[in-house]
Design a binder for these strands. Structure first.
Lengths: 251, 251
DNA sequence: CGCACCGTTGAGCAACATCAACGGAGGTGG
DNA sequence: CCACCTCCGTTGATGTTGCTCAACGGTGCG
């Protein structure tokens, strides 16, 4: 099980209250990103006061549910959140997996209700931002507004990536490379990580049968692309995997 | 090569001054929507001065191209705009068809470049909004900010609708019902309309082969769901078509 | 008139889903 | 600690949707 580097266990104390309010949420990439967008200290203080730390959530606990009234967006600080919808036939459609530093709930603004469910896959910590208040703040802080615009704009693009019509191999490669890059962006190892979701979840996300997911992964292993022991993944041939994923991810 | 085509300014008269500033852009649903969001007259005036009317564009003329520097979003006033990307293998991926009242370019904010191409399918008229300026204005007009947030939030959801794994029939039904509703929302007939795009475009959008599109449409016709003569569509059995589309559209 | 493109139709095929069965891991209660 | 159970992941056999390849009629245009 404990085969070296894995998901968010490297995260020591979450609220490292070192006395400096600017770094109080240093593990919350939302604040970090705002800083890098050029937001100044006092602005970050304003942002700081309307944040609400949530968690830890246990696997299976929901952050919000489809139809709930929209009130807040949330930044994942630790763990993985799965967003999904249940279609009229009762089948689950996974919309995405959200890693530390990523923001959920942006798709709920439009009709003031969450259009999907969000559930913790492992132990999850969140920063919750009241949306009316962060929007109000954004009118005073152009850089915050800019950051929110960018976040939403990005989500539009991400949603259409996996909408393409690609082979099972390409989709799986893109899934693995996508995870790898997003983890790397947060300081985790891009080569070794743990899948926090079941094969069924992956299958629902990639619009495939769980059996197909299993078969593709095993073939990737036979071909020397990856090494997979249950939920522990090691990428062995990043280049070939990336070239497979290229058609889906576009770079 | 890609930069020559951005927003041709064939119509330098920015303000069609008919005397009443509130209706100057009455065909531009963007302003209308802003009004309905509670924006007042003077706010609309502010919006009004930074709009730039573009067009008419001829079929095949591009509004922007993939990789172009992002500078503006645009609201379609008349005609249909197709957004698409060319994947590394040279295959076209249609992202969407944009009807009067809809806004394009929102997915370009994230990395300051348009991630896709936008081309006129018929004669197209646009309202162009400099994004830096409209964003600036949005800090002063909370209702405008709110409207922009909503537009983007909606696009996130729309992008994931067709990402699901559905049958050819369901996708086609959803496509037709979607068009019907969006046209109805702009005052056009929901039962009879013209397809402004080719079968190949539809196929690329629905991730199917053109042959499949053709076959499904013909079968819909045999089953009495629709009547189709080349690009003229008449929906005969809205209910059955909607029930087919339900799984995709979710309501 | 000739050409190019669009839409349609048919035949064969391939990718992936479905159905079925089984081994292993982890959790629970005795 | 063991017995049991359930869920997860894997593997094999079979089925079916929709793609590919091919051919053809219609329409618009130079």
């Amino acid at each position: 099980m404990s085969s070296g580097v894995v998901f968010p266990r490297t995260n020591p104390s979450i609220i490292a209250d070192d006395g400096d309010s600017l770094t109080f949420c240093s593990t919350c990439a939302f604040s970090q990103a705002c800083l890098s967008e050029g937001m100044d200290k006092s602005a970050l203080m304003d942002l700081h006061v309307l944040v609400e730390h949530v968690g830890p959530l246990r696997p299976g606990e929901h952050v919000f549910r489809e139809g709930d009234e929209f009130s807040a967006i949330a930044a994942v600080r630790a763990g993985t959140v799965k967003t999904y919808m249940i279609d009229p036939n009762g089948h689950e459609q996974v919309l995405g997996f959200h890693l530390p530093g990523e923001v959920i709930g942006l798709n709920a603004i439009h009709d003031d209700r969450y259009p999907c469910n969000a559930v913790a896959l492992d132990t999850v910590m969140l920063c919750r931002f009241s949306f009316p208040r962060i929007a109000m703040l954004a009118t005073r802080l152009p850089n915050l507004q800019r950051h929110l615009f960018k976040l939403m704009s990005r989500d539009i693009g991400v949603a259409s990536l996996f909408a393409g019509d690609h082979s099972a191999d390409q989709r799986m490669a893109a899934f693995l490379i996508g995870l790898s890059r997003r983890l790397a962006a947060r300081g985790f190892s891009p080569r070794r990580f743990q899948l926090t979701m079941s094969r069924t979840d992956i299958a629902n996300y990639l619009r495939q049968a769980p059996e197909t997911v299993s078969r593709v992964l095993r073939r990737f292993e036979r071909e020397g692309l990856v090494s997979i022991k249950l939920r522990d993944v090691e990428i062995l041939d990043m280049q070939r995997l990336e070239s497979l994923a290229l058609v889906v991810l576009r770079h």
